[in-house]
Amino acid sequence: MKHAVVIGSGPAGLMAAEVMAQAGISVTLCDAKPSVGRKFLMAGKSGLNLTKEEPESAFHAAYTDTTTWLAPMLKAFGPDEVQTWAQGLGQEMFTGTTGRVFPKTMKASPLLRAWLARLNDLGVTINTRWRWTGWAGASLAFDTPQGAQTITPDATILALGGASWKRLGSDGAWYPVLLEKGLRLRPFAPANAGLSIKWTDFMDKHLGTALKSIALSSGPYSSRGEAVLSRHGLEGGGIYSVSRGVREGHPLVLDLMPDLTVQAIAQKLSKPRGKATLTSHIRKSLKLDAAKIALLQEMAMPLPSAPAHLASVIKALPVRHGGLRPMDEAISTAGGIAQAAVDDALMIKALPNTYAVGEMLDWEAPTGGYLITACLATGAWAGRHAAARLNT
């Protein structure tokens, strides 16, 4: 029986292990942490968004600049396949109003337990606290509780993640190891990241508040969503969706009333103000909540009193900031192994029978089910091709 080693136990690694084991390959899964799937469990802490139901063209377009690279993998294991797979593990699924797909339990732990049980039934061996350190000759080298260990497999799947959330295992320690092997790598950068803002004391009472029903834009990237006023700046899905634009140097602009035109807002502001303060007039005439008004004042004081000018600021509020939050706080990372470094099967050209999957690869997508789907899809793709090569 042929033997494969999978290094890394996120969704991509677990899926690669499953696919190869189902094809009759003996699989050993190694992870540096004391338990598997740690980032996967954290991703499901507030609701495990596995995938998204929407037209295929829109789904693929979410993967910025890499549609042609990931398209065959997403066609082979896209939203429908993800749901069928999860249902096969006993998870009932439901689709929210925005198309996001979740298990009915909303948690990652039941799915992970069922998944690990399936891998156990397939004979997959799992070694935890095995940290991969590179190669010793033709063998994979590991630091383990029992000391240095080596394995010489017939195929290797690298599923070591990106470089965010180090405490959960994605520490990017593999980068210099592969760089020494001559691979073409792109520098890591934060993706789906929050924004750093040094608030004045005026904002203290609003921290923790969600800004709802807003539109955000940064260069070519735009979204409708929410943002949370956090202690460090702005967080949330709306910000994450446009964080690439911020990273590329574009200004960030908020539309605090995206359902109204500038003219409609100006008309409302043109109502008699009387003795009311400008802040009170804005609140009463526009029904803006306190957090939005506070942000407006924080970013654009002194506010213009002319209705047309004030309406323009409300519709296009420039946000002063200190850049993205540190990479280790980001939901995901851009950068990693460039497309040119792997073949169509995701086998690393410089390392025969060694494949790379998941966030190790240089692709980028927003939150909303896209990240996990692509990790599962690349894991299934490489696992299937590796098994076929070994079984030939």
Score class of each variant (00 low, 15 high):
32 A>S: 15
212 K>D: 10
117 A>Y: 02
283 R>Q: 15
151 I>L: 15
163 A>Y: 08
282 I>W: 12
265 I>K: 03
44 G>K: 00
276 A>H: 12
292 K>M: 13
108 A>C: 10
287 K>F: 15
261 T>S: 15
228 V>A: 06
51 T>K: 02
303 L>R: 01
216 L>D: 06
59 F>L: 06
347 M>P: 05
118 R>F: 07
175 Y>N: 01
92 E>K: 13
266 A>Q: 11
135 W>V: 00
170 S>L: 08
91 Q>Y: 05
41 L>G: 06
147 G>I: 02
124 V>L: 07
83 Q>S: 10
126 I>K: 06
340 A>M: 09
237 G>E: 01
65 D>H: 14
360 M>Y: 02
193 A>Q: 03
156 T>D: 12
138 A>H: 14
66 T>G: 07
182 G>K: 00
277 T>H: 13
252 L>V: 07
336 G>K: 08
213 S>Q: 13
154 D>I: 05
215 A>P: 04
199 W>Q: 07
48 L>P: 01
81 E>T: 12
151 I>H: 14
71 A>E: 15
336 G>V: 09
59 F>S: 02
358 G>H: 02
60 H>M: 10
138 A>V: 10
73 M>Q: 14
102 F>L: 09
319 V>G: 04
133 T>V: 04
348 I>S: 07
202 F>L: 00
175 Y>D: 02
371 L>C: 07
293 I>N: 07
219 G>M: 02
188 F>D: 08
304 P>G: 04
242 V>A: 03
322 G>H: 09
326 P>N: 05
178 L>T: 02
392 T>Y: 06
243 S>Q: 06
349 K>R: 15
185 L>E: 07
183 L>C: 01
40 F>V: 01
36 V>L: 13
315 K>M: 05
239 I>F: 04
243 S>D: 09
330 A>V: 05
129 R>V: 01
55 P>Y: 05
283 R>L: 13
341 A>Q: 06
53 E>C: 09
85 W>L: 04
147 G>Y: 06
160 L>N: 11
170 S>I: 04
73 M>L: 04
13 G>Y: 09
70 L>V: 15
7 I>F: 04
112 L>P: 13
255 D>N: 13
299 M>C: 10
375 C>Q: 05
371 L>A: 06
261 T>G: 13
282 I>R: 03
100 R>P: 13
248 E>Q: 10
378 T>L: 05
161 G>I: 06
317 L>I: 06
245 G>W: 02
26 S>T: 12
138 A>M: 13
390 L>H: 11
38 R>Y: 02
159 A>R: 09
273 R>V: 11
237 G>I: 00
50 L>D: 03
310 L>S: 08
251 P>V: 03
131 R>H: 12
123 G>H: 00
26 S>E: 12
335 G>K: 08
222 S>G: 08
13 G>P: 11
145 P>T: 03
217 S>N: 08
182 G>C: 02
77 F>A: 00
186 R>N: 14
23 A>M: 02
348 I>P: 10
382 A>H: 13
66 T>V: 15
33 K>R: 14
264 A>V: 05
363 W>D: 03
48 L>Y: 05
374 A>K: 07
173 A>L: 07
222 S>K: 06
256 L>R: 07
333 T>Y: 07
246 V>M: 10
108 A>L: 04
208 G>Y: 04
287 K>Q: 15
106 M>I: 00
47 G>E: 02
7 I>W: 04
151 I>N: 06
200 T>K: 13
6 V>Q: 09
292 K>Y: 13
188 F>N: 12
212 K>E: 14
